[in-house]
Amino acid sequence: MNDDELDRVFKALGDPTRRRIIDRLRERPKQSLFEICALSFADDGAPLSRQAVTQHLDMLQKAGLVRVEWSGRTKLHTLDPGPLREAFGLWLRNHL
């Protein structure tokens, strides 16, 4: 992981909604956009617009934190904690 990739991980983490999406995907992998929006509203009472979630998922995906797979013609999102571990090993660990 180079500096740019590390930047993308920390930028992806630097937003409360994206951290919420990460928390949700850890609890339940393989969610469609519809499920991410419906479940976050059901559980937190805070509605997330689909456009906003789409953009957040895009940033998470570019940081390697979310993987996309297809189930038939539906796109499903799953958390990949790999880049978090790498960010920990590369930098965070030095200060803990």
Partner: peptide
């Protein structure tokens, strides 16, 4: 197709 892609009923 766009609805199905995003899992929207």
């Amino acid at each position: 197709a766009a609805l199905v892609e995003d899992g929207i009923p």
